[in-house]
Every structure is written in C-alpha cells, then in structure tokens.
Write a protein that binds this DNA or RNA. Sequence first.
DNA 1: GCCAACGTTGGC
DNA 2: GCCAACGTTGGC
Length: 152
Amino acid sequence: MNYWLLKSEPTTFSIDDLVKSDKKTTYWDGVRNYQVRNMLRDDIKSGDKAFFYHSNCKPPGIAGIVDIVKSGYPDPSAFDKKSKYYDPKSTDEKPIWYCVDVKFVEKFDEVVSLDQIKNHPKLKNMVVARKGSRLSITPVTKVEWDLILGML
DNA sequence: GCCAACGTTGGC
DNA sequence: GCCAACGTTGGC
C-alpha cells in the first residue's frame, strides 16, 4: 500500500465537489504530463490512499483524504472530442493518458497549509514543498502521512 | 499579475 | 541530438 498527494485547483474541482459527486467517487482525469502519467499507469493501485491538495488558492494545502478505488486505466477524456483534455494522438489501441478512480474519505476541519508543511522540520522535504515542484501527483512516505495526520 | 522552474516543441 | 522559444504550473 502506497501513499500519494493529488493536486487540484479548487476552482476546477475541490474536495467539496468530490463530496457532491455520485457515490463520492470520481475519476482523476486530465493529467497530461508523462511523469505523472507513468505513476497513474504503473504505481498507483486500488487500495492506496492519497491526500487531496488544493493548489493555486489561499491557502494552498491539504484539504482531506481519498482512497484509490480503481487502478490506472485509459483516460476517457483523451478520447472525448468535446473535452478540453482531448488528445487525438491517444487511441483505443494505444492510449497515451491514464487516470484512476478516487473516493472521498475525509475532509479536514482545517486545511493543513503548505506553509505549515514547509515550517515543519520533518516535513519541509516533502516533494510537494520543494521549490519548483509542479507535478500534480507526488508520492508521500508513511512517515510523512502520519506526521500530517498528527497535525490535525 | 509576476515570475521561477520546469516541460514541450520544432527548426536546424 | 541540441537548444532557443514558448507554454504551463502554482506560489507569492
């Protein structure tokens, strides 16, 4: 079992939007970065857990927890001509982009802010806190996971 | 709105 | 294959 951090801009899709989703589940689509694609395809498995991170907002930080309920499969939005994520290079035979399904578990009473993480002596090296870290999915260690939960 | 830190594209 | 130009992310 592995731990992850999933970034989303709350103006696009927030943890509250996930709560309102059918069965509190959605597919994590629209990833168009190869490093993240590889994680979705190869590493993120059903049963893993992830932090739901709000980016590009005030304050940026971890808003809650989700479960991965379906491992990597071809991202349907890449085949959808009406989607802004449509990519004609991705085909049924050779899909380029992948997604996973995530289910709501918990929303924190207070966001664990990026500022708190950066100021924590044992968390300041988390991938998401590193300068220039732009990947929309990053791995989280069990130690980091437990420390974050300890800050609630 | 600015800009650092990347990733991607395309000419050569 | 190199690298300049361009695009995107996301904190500030």
